[in-house]
Amino acid sequence: MNLSARTEEKVMFDHIASMLRTYEKKRENLMAILQEIQGKYGYVAPPALQMVAKHLGLSSCEVYGVATFYNQFRFNPPGKHQIRVCLGTACHVRGGDIILENFERKLEIKAGETTPDREFSIDRVACVGCCALAPVAIVDDTVYGHMAPSKVEGVILGFEIEKERKEREKQDSESQE
């Protein structure tokens, strides 16, 4: 882990500590707390689980047991861009698994994993409720309806071009300074 990631983590834990103070020490707040952490940081780091347990007066393994029961919680940092491929019934009938496979092949990771550069992560989701647009993939907050294997490359390429453009801009502005 490099230095900046370490500082980032420290900042995260400080934030979580102050966030916890806003919650009453009641077990019924457990889910809401875990959801807030997941929503803000994209994952619930194991030390965060301990902090939550301590705050609510529960044992850590109990909090761990609850958190691992639900699909929503991740325990590793997600990629910068989260790709979620819908595998609901309608998407399955229309070839959602082929779309998932294409993302997996293109990024060389499996569902549930993050690319080594932490740019992308892929997840399977049960149904996002856009069945009429099947097959569907959601990248960050954008829903891509009527996906096709050939569109997969385009989606990823789009992000890569965007990243390059940003880097170039950064370099340009740095060279101007």
């Binding site: 077990r27 019924e28 457990l30 889910m31 959801q35 609850v66 029961f69 639900y70 929503q72 049960a126």
Partner: peptide
């Protein structure tokens, strides 16, 4: 409003209750 955290079984009423109570939704 209570947000369910992604467990199909929580549609079952006794599991739903447990998940509101901050337990495993069994």
């Amino acid at each position: 409003v209570f947000q369910g955290s992604g467990a199909f079984v929580c549609g079952e009423e006794t599991a739903l209750i447990r998940s509101i109570q901050g337990q495993r939704g069994m």
